[in-house]
Amino acid sequence: MSENMLTLQKVTVDFSGFKAINELDFQVAPNNVHFVIGPNGAGKTTLLDCICGKSRATSGAILLHGKKDLTKRSEEKIVHQGIARKFQAPSIFHKLTVMENLEIAMKQKKRLFAMMKAKWTKTEKQSIHDMLDLIDLIEEKDELAGTLAHGQKQWLEIAMVLVQEPDIVLLDEPIAGMSKKERDKTGELITKIAEDRAVLIVEHDMDFVKSYADIVTVMHEGQVLFEGSMDEVQNDPKVREVYLGRKVEEDADNTGA
């Protein structure tokens, strides 16, 4: 494996006294499906938040390709660096059509005056069409996004992340509220998009993690507790004690332990 795409060095996020992330060291490698798991309040979502700029790191550095520090940049600048994020709740634009949602999301010059002059190019049309094909929304392309089913909305949002052609994809619970069939399809989609980029996913569903993870990080109280393959995670005594142990008593079947 080559150098890391993203390196977090001693990052702390402090919410007026409460350290959601505490001196976290963390790496994301290219071409990997990297899952982050952990009990509620472990700091998983905050981890994604501070990478994409929604929350600010109180201290520490987030380095892209080992050099550029992201912690002081604005959200849109971070996006321009090639980091795209999907949020937990589908946050697509309900009053725009599926096509229009993708149109404004896709990689292009997004500054004011460039946008005023923007016109469809052939390559843009083709790539949007391919994306619609991939998420199976060709027939719905002119429907308002608000009328889509929940699973379709999730896919549309994943597609909106992908058309930005990012190097790093951040997904927050992408399969929440999906049926079994939709989950499988999302999993395939994720495997496919990881072929040429890094994918970082926060997920609760252990079966899903097991099926698609290349590498799993277990977070606990704002720090990395363990990192390795899913098998290693499941057999690690520390994880069993702190995380799975506690989970097993509550809802054994969900954890898949």
Binding site: S74, A84, I104
Partner: peptide, 21 residues
């Protein structure tokens, strides 16, 4: 497309930031 961006800002300003606007 410009108008769609405006509608995007109207309906989800923060979301637009994370799309790079």
């Amino acid at each position: 497309r410009f108008g769609n961006v405006l509608i995007g800002i109207r309906d989800g300003e923060n979301r637009m930031r994370f799309l790079g606007y």
